[in-house]
């Protein structure tokens, strides 16, 4: 997929565990894992907002575009 999710990097920078982030954002650990592994088809603005708030970052810190060509 052309959109890369850099959630692992941000979690490591903030020294936060996935379980903790899932609890703060209000999603299941399974869904967070789907997001982290890049299997997600879409992300709601509300989820993105909650993640950015929890990790104190910008959407661009979590999501990146990589040209597949």
């Amino acid at each position: 997929m052309a959109i890369i999710v850099n959630l692992d990097v941000m979690l490591a920078k903030r020294k936060m565990q996935s379980k903790e982030l899932a609890e703060i954002v209000g999603i299941t650990l399974a869904n967070l894992s789907i997001l982290k592994t890049g299997k997600a088809k879409a992300i709601r603005f509300s989820t993105l907002e909650a993640i950015c708030q929890a990790l104190d970052c910008q959407p661009g810190d979590i999501l990146a575009f990589e040209n597949e060509e």
Binding site: I27, L32, I34, K39, A40, K41, A42, R44
Partner: peptide
């Protein structure tokens, strides 16, 4: 349905 399920 799959897209709905994989929307986080």
């Amino acid at each position: 349905k799959e897209e709905q399920e994989l929307t986080i």
